[in-house]
């Protein structure tokens, strides 16, 4: 079970004077159960890339395989693919339309042609997974707050029970608490439901905390594909393409320059805290 992209190119305005690469020779493989962070500056091709993964966009050249099958081949059921590779777009406003939250979440499973009980069962389960309290289920989705809308949007895709969940900037425009809650729920889907997750973001902090592998895009090309710690070691190159390593790596960097020897690769605040406390503990025992 995997998604494999094989030398994907995508050209805008093919055959005209305005021809431009949105994706340029992108290859990678996503194994089952991975948590991938997809990161890149605005216009780096991340959104274009994820739309290729569930067949919403077609590559100009190159192939995409889902579980070994070419998704662009004649007769491939792309509609079924979309329920297996769930894609949640950035703006919940682009998909909410029903009179109440519950029926909106039912839209996906209804399109799958399931029985009425199954649809409701799945919708309930999905809403519970995203942590939306039952009191909101009967409300109009347009009356909800930004974070709640986002939850309904995610539930709308989860209700189709996808094997892979791709989320495009699920935390954009949320306050820190809302952001943490949503990310925790996504992380729970990964650890408890063993779902493969692709998280698109430009916040290095979010990605460092959850992803076990990072794909960095710049100008339509894949520039890094490695575990977070390895990618963040290239923070100078990251800065050149308009990104940055998590802030804490800079703090650690400065501390090291000051002669404080912190051990290991530190990319999260938690790791830094442990390391610093460990050092202080040693120093304290010496006094």
């Amino acid at each position: 079970m995997s998604i494999k992209a094989d030398h994907i190119n995508y050209l805008y305005g093919e055959g005209t004077a305005f021809e431009q690469y949105a994706l340029k020779d992108v290859s990678f493989e996503i194994e089952d159960g991975q948590f991938i962070g997809l990161i890149g500056h605005t216009g780096s091709g991340k959104s274009t890339l994820i739309q290729h993964l569930n067949g919403l966009m077609r590559a100009s050249s190159g192939k995409i395989y889902y579980n070994g099958e070419d998704i662009d081949q004649e007769g491939y059921d792309r509609k079924a693919l979309r329920s297996r590779v769930g894609l949640v777009f950035q703006y919940p406003e682009h998909q909410l339309f029903e009179v109440d939250v519950f029926s909106d979440v039912c839209f996906g499973p209804k399109n799958q042609g399931l029985s009425q009980e199954e649809i409701q069962q799945r919708a309930k389960e999905a809403l519970m997974q995203v942590g939306l309290k039952e009191q909101f289920w009967g409300q109009s989705p347009f009356e909800l707050s930004g974070g709640q809308k986002r939850r309904v949007a995610i539930a709308g895709v989860l209700a189709m029970r996808p094997e892979v969940l791709i989320l495009d900037e699920p935390t954009a425009g949320l306050d820190p608490r809302g952001r943490d809650e949503i990310l925790d729920e996504i992380s729970k889907l990964h650890t408890e439901k063993k779902m493969t997750i692709v998280l698109v973001s430009h916040s290095m902090e979010d990605i460092a905390r959850y992803a076990d592998r990072i794909l960095v895009m710049s100008h339509g090309e894949k520039v890094f594909d490695a575990p977070p710690k390895e990618v963040f070691r290239h923070y100078k190159e990251l800065e050149q393409i308009g990104l940055a390593a998590p802030q804490i790596t800079y703090v650690v960097q400065r501390l090291r320059e000051q002669g404080i020897s912190l051990d290991g690769d530190i990319t999260t605040v938690k790791e830094a805290t442990t390391a610093i406390l460990g050092l202080l503990g040693k120093a304290g025992s010496r006094v």
Partner: peptide, 16 residues
């Protein structure tokens, strides 16, 4: 452009 985005978001939920 917005129509295009909405269509895609609904197609991702199996709309036809």
């Amino acid at each position: 452009e917005e129509t295009d985005k909405i269509m895609k978001a609904q197609m991702a939920r199996g709309a036809d």
